[in-house]
Amino acid sequence: MSTYRTLEIASKVHDYSVFFTDDFTGFLAEPDAAEFYLVDANVARLYAEQLAPVFARPHLIIEATEANKSIEGCTRAMYELVEGGFKRGMRLVAIGGGIVQDICCFCATVIYRGVEWRFYPTTLLAQADSCIGSKSSVNMGDYKNLVGSFYPPNDIVLDTAFLTTLAQGDILSGLGEIIKVHLLDSPESMEYMRERYAAARADVRSDAMAELIVSALSIKKRVIEIDEYDRDYRNIMNYGHTFGHAIESLTDYGMPHGQAITIGMDLANDLSWFLGMIDEATYRRMREAIEPNWPSMSLAGLDLEKLFDALKKDKKNTDERVAFILTRGPGQMSRERVALDDAVRGRIAAWFEAYRPAE
Rank of each mutant, 00 (worst) to 15 (best):
Met1Gln: 13
Arg5Thr: 05
Thr6Phe: 07
Thr6Cys: 13
Thr6Asp: 14
Leu7Trp: 04
Val13Ala: 15
Val13Gly: 01
Phe19Lys: 09
Tyr37Pro: 02
Leu38Tyr: 05
Asp40Tyr: 06
Asp40His: 05
Asn42Val: 11
Ala48Gln: 13
Glu49Pro: 01
Gln50Ile: 01
Ala56Leu: 15
Arg57Leu: 06
Leu60Glu: 15
Thr65Phe: 03
Gly73Ala: 10
Gly73Trp: 12
Ala77Asn: 15
Ala77Thr: 15
Leu81Tyr: 12
Leu81Glu: 05
Val82Leu: 15
Gly84Gln: 05
Phe86Trp: 11
Met90His: 12
Arg91Cys: 15
Leu92Trp: 12
Ala94His: 04
Gly98Asp: 09
Val100Leu: 14
Asp102Pro: 10
Cys105Ile: 06
Cys107Val: 12
Thr109Val: 00
Val110Trp: 15
Tyr112His: 13
Gly114Ser: 09
Val115Ser: 13
Phe119Gly: 01
Tyr120Phe: 15
Tyr120Trp: 08
Pro121Gln: 04
Thr122Met: 08
Leu124Pro: 02
Ala126Gln: 05
Ser130Val: 09
Ile132Asn: 06
Lys135Thr: 06
Val138Arg: 11
Tyr143Ile: 14
Lys144Met: 01
Leu146Gln: 14
Val147Cys: 06
Phe150Arg: 13
Tyr151Ala: 03
Leu158Ile: 05
Asp159Gly: 03
Ala167Gly: 14
Ile171Ala: 02
Leu172Tyr: 15
Leu172Asn: 10
Ser173Trp: 03
Ser173Gly: 11
Gly174Pro: 04
Gly174Arg: 07
Ser186Tyr: 08
Met190Phe: 08
Glu191Ala: 10
Arg196Phe: 08
Ala200Asp: 05
Asp203Trp: 04
Asp207Pro: 10
Met209Gly: 02
Ala210Phe: 08
Glu211Ala: 14
Ile213Ser: 03
Val214Ile: 12
Val214Gln: 12
Ala216Pro: 04
Leu217Gly: 06
Leu217Pro: 00
Val223Gln: 02
Val223Asn: 08
Ile224Asp: 06
Ile226His: 14
Glu228Asp: 10
Tyr229Arg: 14
Tyr229Cys: 11
Asp230Phe: 08
Asn235Lys: 13
Ile236Thr: 09
Asn238Ile: 08
Tyr239Leu: 11
His241Asp: 01
Phe243Gly: 00
Ile247Pro: 08
Glu248Val: 02
Gly254Ile: 01
Met255Gly: 02
Met255Asn: 00
His257Glu: 07
Gln259Asn: 12
Ala260Tyr: 01
Leu267Cys: 15
Ser272Ala: 08
Ser272Gln: 03
Trp273Ala: 09
Met277Ala: 06
Ile278Tyr: 02
Tyr283Ile: 05
Arg284Trp: 06
Arg285Pro: 05
Ala289Tyr: 04
Glu291Ala: 12
Trp294Glu: 10
Ala300Lys: 13
Leu302Pro: 05
Asp303Met: 04
Asp303Phe: 00
Lys306Asp: 11
Ala310Glu: 13
Lys312Tyr: 02
Thr318Val: 13
Thr318Ser: 14
Ala323Gln: 10
Arg328Ala: 11
Arg328Tyr: 09
Gln332Trp: 10
Met333Arg: 01
Arg337Val: 10
Ala343Phe: 01
Arg345Asn: 03
Arg345Val: 02
Arg356Lys: 14
Pro357Thr: 01
Ala358Lys: 14
